[in-house]
């Protein structure tokens, strides 16, 4: 499969877990995973793929989806797998559901930045490039998100 094939195999897991942390919905994350790589190929071809560009495209795909679907029901963040039949799709780990639920209650921008940081592979500088924020802003917001998450998980 060449460079892009290796890139796809190496990073689809990180991207899928970023999307799962952002949406809490495995079926939607799978659709967005496919959409992200497809958009990448359509717009940039297979030469020299980069992780920040992939995440930029994935975030745009996710925000496009949300713009069409807004408003999200506030209590819909169960961390359950998507689809009618969980046996047919990706199963969200039982122990991860509390974390996903807590992430789902964070403000969207903080959930986004923290998910980008913990999903792996992106430095603060790259997250700044992906999000359009300054590195200084990234540091503050990521730490604020971690502290909020700790408080939320304590309440579980």
């Amino acid at each position: 499969m060449g460079d892009f094939g290796s890139f796809y195999l190496r990073h689809r897991k990180e991207l899928f877990h970023y999307l799962l942390r952002m949406t809490g919905d495995a079926a939607l994350s799978e659709d967005l995973l496919q959409e992200s790589f497809t958009r990448f190929l359509d717009r940039y071809g297979r030469e020299d793929p980069t992780l920040p560009l992939l995440f930029t495209i994935a975030r745009n795909a996710l925000f496009d989806h949300w713009r069409k679907r807004r408003p999200l029901p506030s209590g819909d963040w169960s961390g359950e797998t998507g689809g009618e039949n969980p046996e047919e799709g990706v199963i969200v780990r039982e122990e991860a559901r509390a974390v996903l639920r807590a992430l789902g209650t964070l403000p969207e921008d903080e959930r986004d930045l923290l998910s980008l940081a913990v999903t792996g592979g992106l430095s603060y500088r790259e997250i700044a490039a992906v999000s359009g924020l300054s590195e200084g802003n990234i540091k503050v917001r990521i730490h604020r998100a971690r502290r909020k998450l700790r408080d939320l998980l304590r309440e579980e």
């Binding site: 689809r12 995973l33 496919q34 199963i91 991860a96 923290l114």
Partner: peptide, 17 residues
């Protein structure tokens, strides 16, 4: 806890450019 992969499986969708 946060960095544990939320799912064991990761889908591998067929892609088309």
């Amino acid at each position: 806890r946060l960095r544990e992969p939320p799912s064991r499986d990761v889908p591998m969708p067929a892609l088309s450019p």
